[in-house]
């Protein structure tokens, strides 16, 4: 076989291989995509919550996309406390202003960013804090969070994740969006939340 024949054969082999790879790739895509959350689950990720019954100092936990969401009506002294925290002392740096739409309402995912347990609400004092800091204490491995849902101490690497929400009116809160799948990114600031949520 001449050199030219050899290179033609190589060309055919490479082209066949590339076309084959494209074929396998496009055949595999529907199968992989079929494993991600179904369209009804994504669409069900929008719900309206009545917050009129939550008094200052109280928390309501609701299930959103099968995950607990904390809705906290914060007392003025809590707001004052989390806003005077020195952000540079935090591991996951964020100001309270960046994490809430209205100062008196904190809405976040109630999942410890360490290994996914639900932290306990401690409106008086998070165990082991002195001076006393109200917030959350995770019973699994001792993660501590303040009333802005920010990680203070313990193994959690991040603050509580935020979820898309908006105030329909003074008593109703809409949580979620029809497009936000919520399993791809850790939204840390209100301004990073997707539209329509």
């Amino acid at each position: 076989m001449s050199d030219e024949g050899q290179s033609r054969r190589d060309f055919l082999k490479v082209t066949t291989g590339l076309f084959g790879a494209c074929g396998v790739g496009s055949a595999a895509y529907p199968f992989l995509k079929a494993l991600s959350p179904t369209k009804d689950l994504i669409a069900a990720g929008v719900q309206v919550v009545d917050i009129s019954g939550i008094k200052p100092g109280e928390m309501k936990t609701i299930l959103w996309r099968k995950q607990p969401v904390f809705i906290v009506h914060r007392k003025p002294e809590w707001i004052e406390q989390v806003r005077k925290t020195d952000v540079s002392t935090l591991k996951d740096k964020a100001t309270d202003e960046e994490r809430v739409i209205k100062p008196e309402w904190l809405v976040c995912l109630g999942i410890c960013t360490h290994l996914g347990c639900i932290p306990a609400f401690e409106p008086v004092q998070v165990p082991g804090t002195s001076p006393a800091v109200p917030g959350w204490y995770c019973p699994c491995h001792g993660g501590k969070y303040d009333m802005s849902g920010r990680r203070l101490d313990g193994p959690p690497p991040e603050n509580f994740h935020l979820v898309p929400y908006k105030f329909v009116n003074d008593t109703q809160l809409e949580i979620g969006s029809a497009t936000f799948a919520g399993f791809t990114a850790n939204i840390r600031k209100i301004k990073d939340l997707p539209e329509g949520g």
Binding site: F31, A34, S36, T38, K39, D40
Partner: peptide, 13 residues
């Protein structure tokens, strides 16, 4: 019906 409508590419499968 759920497979046909809600599962991604469920109709194809």
């Amino acid at each position: 019906e759920h497979i046909m409508r809600d599962v991604h590419f469920g109709w194809l499968l």
